[in-house]
Design a binder for these strands. Sequence first.
DNA 1: TTGACATATGAGTCATTGTTCATATATAAT
DNA 2: ATTATATATGAACAATGACTCATATGTCAA
Lengths: 103, 103
Amino acid sequence: MSNQVTSTIDEAVRLFKIYSDTTRLRIIELLLDNEFCVQDIADQLDASQSAISHQLKLLRDRHVVKTRKHGKQVFYSLQDNHIKEIFLVAYSHVTECNEPDCE
Amino acid sequence: MSNQVTSTIDEAVRLFKIYSDTTRLRIIELLLDNEFCVQDIADQLDASQSAISHQLKLLRDRHVVKTRKHGKQVFYSLQDNHIKEIFLVAYSHVTECNEPDCE
DNA sequence: TTGACATATGAGTCATTGTTCATATATAAT
DNA sequence: ATTATATATGAACAATGACTCATATGTCAA
């Protein structure tokens, strides 16, 4: 734990950065239990097709989501179970913190 | 789950952003089990006093760390147990992912 | 009070990043 | 082949954020 940690910390930072954007986190939330094509995601998040497509590319590059082509459409779903778990841990922490003096 | 979720997602994003910087994450790692004063943190992370102080202010504003004054020094320690837990979950996921095909 | 040390902070700079706009690619239907 | 639809992508722009530099504040010792 000293030199290896440095790069491990950087890897952790890379992981956290994936979740550190509203659009991406909402995409991940959408895909928790379903698969959706690009336009469906854009519609549900009220975002442009381009913005969503850019973020999906980023998520795919980081192996967070996988794709399935069907005709003209591309369906996206979560690839990594870690993603789901970390999302849920953080999500529950945020929603739990409604008591006074919490956080 | 629809309008409330939007702001919950934003809260989660805010939480993830705390971890999304190498300097901050290394500070959090340092403080997992100990308290340290500003200069000690700066020395151990090979960073400037000012850079560390700025990040500590951010962490304090977000209730991640608490302070204890002792003479001229200010000692920082973790305030929130959630922080520790989320750090460890992510950290273990990152270190686990050394098998082929993982991540 | 003066000087030394520890920490805090405002302003400016530079890099990163999320979005839009325009356009390219891919697939299906006619 | 042509057109329409779905998705991908490069460039430009704007916002954010982390750092440095200079300096302020706070505390102790002499």
